[in-house]
């Protein structure tokens, strides 16, 4: 059965609300092509059934997957560059002076998708620190097994490396592998990828010095946002740093964070005694 007009409108509204991307009428077949793999994965025969399922029982994870499937552009390198600038300009120097020379810095890229964010962090730290491989450990988690596997493989298509990855970093950290580019073994060793559902109790990890939790909270309702922030905080060091998406904030959600402005971006730090 092909996509019904009601289902298409529902997807259109959802995508516009969550990503500000407008799907023009006539793109029904595109929605079908992009969502069919997800429908099949869920044991459904077509996209209309998928839309019905998610409409009847709204679910943040499935909602996010639908939006992501229709917004391939979500994964550029240095996406909203400011939180990465803040890492090297402010966060790293502060952590290096606060930690012992042999203490490993632990960074968590939550909702790491196909790996652009954790490898962006890895490249920046590898360029900034002489001993990054032994000094830093980056945990990359994502809900999707496929994304976790892609992150582990560290392979990116031509179109993906074109998206905001500076050319000097491409040639320094990647080699050509067929028609893809493969991130260096050094950086792959810094990144540990695993599956993780942020809306459920979290596995034992950390404690983290820095957490990137960007463009995830927007998909959840207030109580879930609050519990995610609480669980993340439990995995962070007391003087750690949390980066959220540019459109996200802890303000009005969870008052146990202090907002710190760094250049053009903001970080959140656990409030002492909160």
């Amino acid at each position: 059965m092909s996509l019904t007009a009601t289902s298409f409108d529902w997807v259109r509204d959802l995508v516009r609300k969550e990503s500000a991307i407008v799907l023009q009428p006539g793109k029904e077949y595109l929605v079908e092509a992009r969502l069919l793999p997800m429908a099949r994965q869920m044991g459904l025969t077509d996209v209309t059934k998928l839309v019905e399922t998610v409409r009847v029982r709204p679910d943040a994870d499935n909602t996010r997957r639908i939006v992501e499937a229709l917004t391939t552009n979500e994964t550029s390198w240095f996406r909203d560059g400011d939180p990465f600038t803040a890492l090297t300009s402010t966060v790293l120097p502060s952590l290096l002076s606060a930690r012992g020379a042999n203490e490993r810095l632990q960074i968590w890229s939550a909702a790491s998708s196909s790996g652009q964010e954790p490898y962006t962090i890895a490249m920046l730290l590898d360029d900034a620190l002489p001993n990054a491989t032994s000094r830093v450990s980056i945990t990359a988690t994502d809900l999707s097994r496929e994304m976790v596997q892609r992150t582990r493989a560290g392979r990116f298509s031509q179109l993906e490396v074109n998206r905001g990855l500076p050319a000097p970093m491409l040639v320094r950290h990647f080699t050509r592998a067929g028609n893809e580019w493969e991130v260096s073994a050094n950086l792959r060793r810094m990144v540990n990828a695993s599956e993780c559902n942020l809306a459920a109790p979290l596995p034992r990890m950390g404690p983290f010095d820095v957490v990137y939790l960007r463009n995830v909270l927007i998909y959840f309702d207030l109580p879930t946002k609050q519990s995610i922030l609480r669980r993340v905080r439990d995995l962070m060091r007391p003087d750690g740093w949390l980066f959220l998406g540019a459109a996200e904030t802890t303000l009005g959600v969870d008052d146990s964070w202090e907002r710190v402005v760094i250049g053009r971006s903001s970080a959140y730090r656990p409030l002492k005694g909160a």
Binding site: A20, N73, S76, W77, R163, G164, A246, A247
Partner: peptide
């Protein structure tokens, strides 16, 4: 090549050569 329009825009953003900087916090028209 091949590239998308976004790829050009991303690179110009890296180079600080985007004429109209998209304000932070606004979901970027892609």
């Amino acid at each position: 090549k091949p590239f998308t329009a976004d790829a050009i825009r991303d690179k110009l953003a890296l180079l600080g050569l985007l004429p109209e900087e998209v304000p932070a916090g606004v979901p970027v028209p892609l």
